[in-house]
Amino acid sequence: MTASDPVAARADDVWKVYGSGEAEVIALRGVSVTFQRGVFTAIMGPSGSGKSTLMHCLAGLDSVTRGEVRIGETTVTGLGDAGLTRLRRDKVGFIFQQFNLLPTLSAKENILLPLAIAGRKPDDAWFDTVIRTVGLQDRLEHRPAQLSGGQQQRVACARALVARPEVIFADEPTGNLDSRSGADVLGFLRDSVRQHGQTIVMVTHDPVAASYADRVIFLADGAVVDELHDPSPDMVLDRMKKLDAPAEVER
């Protein structure tokens, strides 16, 4: 990874086909997209548009049928399990809709889990910075069950940030949160991009959430159909309505 390389992740003509014969479903049809370093990107699209699939393929969680995915200088396509494990450990962070914290570990232990797995020592200064950013200073010894949903998701964010990955993939991070907690989470995701140059790719179907991003990519039927920069919620909603319309007609 070199700071001069402006591209954090990219997909080149990525196809994803599930099943075969009559059961064949084409989830992605030749998607090519580039994610600049230090940019907060939202991927939007109606249900079944392939947005989650695209994210899974970018993150190396799912294999592509054709095309190539790169994260930093690593070609993800074709990596074996060991390579993918190393990729997830060193270059990728995740934030999930369901938070996915280990219920038996304290907030602090959950945050440090990726580093513990990698056998790396946490950078204390950075850890403090992250904790302060997400505002968890006095919640570190709590178990997930003792935290509210918003707090849990902040722990999950901190977990993704603390390892300083090349890209953080967030899958509907506000899907399970009320609007205020959601706003908090989105707020410091944006802050971490602005202040620390973190790259974030977020899948969402919420126009308000998408409006926090620097850039919004719209997917429909497995292909990129549109793109917005510095969007407002209304702009996003507007585009989404257009995308949804043909789908409504089909039904």
Binding site: R88, R89, F96, N100, P114
Partner: peptide, 16 residues
């Protein structure tokens, strides 16, 4: 399943 998948997602290897 979900817990073990999470460990894998945050970088745990199969061996771990």
């Amino acid at each position: 399943t979900r817990e073990l998948a999470l460990l894998r997602a945050v970088g745990a290897s199969r061996r771990q």
